[in-house]
Amino acid sequence: MFTDLRMQYECLTCDRVSMTDITVRPLGEDDWADYRSVRLAALRESPEAFVATVEEEEAYDEAFWRARMQRSARLVAEREGKAVGVVSVGTAKTNDVPAGELFGLWVHPEARGSGVATRLVQNGASLAAKRGQTHLVYWVGTENGRAVAFASGMGFRPTDYRRPMGVVSEEDGEEEVAMVLPLGSEVDPALRL
């Protein structure tokens, strides 16, 4: 019986990706087409998670995509040269505290649960720390228990800050909560969003 259970477990995990098989790389302005490709894939697969639509973004020209690459850092997760996830890291709007903002996190459905999101967030936090940012802000739907649990497991802590959702869904609810990850220290009480 033990052998049967072990074989069943191995079959469940045989298609899983180990975290060592995942590479994360920053995308520069010249990588705009790579970012466009993974962004459009995210919009097609999870349209309810984004304010923009795939039709809108497909129509944008190269100049638009190049400008977008300059506004925030873009990180892509790859397995065997194929994009399996993406995240963006910008600058949070805070008072007096240098903080980054994590947004646009998406993982291809076949790679979910395999460590891709973890690697993207770790790399995003590392990038923010290298920029001298002391905190990383991540807005999460208050009703999205899975996303709140993931962020909490990564060390993010909920704050009292809320805002209306850009896209209202049953899974996320109608508002988002700012979750904050201190980068090397405790959450600064002066952090005001």
Rank of each mutant, 00 (worst) to 15 (best):
L40T: 07
R36G: 04
C11G: 15
R112C: 06
M179I: 02
A147I: 08
G166N: 07
E45N: 14
V51D: 01
V187W: 05
R71F: 02
E174Q: 11
D172K: 13
A63V: 00
L136E: 01
V17L: 15
D172P: 04
F64I: 02
E10Y: 12
Y60H: 13
R25D: 08
D15P: 08
A190D: 03
E174M: 07
L181M: 01
G173D: 06
L75R: 08
A149E: 13
R66L: 00
G104D: 06
Y60I: 00
A73K: 09
V137N: 03
M19Q: 15
T94H: 02
R112K: 09
G153D: 06
D21R: 14
A149V: 05
R192F: 11
P47S: 10
D96T: 13
L120G: 04
S169R: 03
L191F: 11
A42L: 04
E10K: 14
A149I: 07
Q133F: 12
T13Y: 10
V97K: 00
R6D: 12
E110C: 12
G184A: 06
A42T: 04
A129Y: 06
L5T: 10
Y9L: 15
W139P: 02
E186A: 13
E29M: 11
F64Q: 03
S37Q: 11
V84Q: 10
R192M: 10
L12Y: 11
Y138V: 08
V87Q: 03
S88G: 13
E57N: 08
R39V: 00
A111F: 11
H135F: 02
R44H: 12
E45R: 11
V89A: 10
E171L: 12
A125G: 11
T20R: 13
T118L: 11
S72F: 09
L120I: 04
A41L: 14
G113Y: 07
A52H: 08
F150E: 05
P182T: 05
D96E: 15
Y138L: 14
M154I: 05
T23W: 10
F64G: 01
E55N: 09
V51E: 06
R39N: 02
E62R: 13
P189Y: 01
G115H: 05
L102A: 03
T118M: 10
V180Q: 03
A42Y: 07
L120M: 05
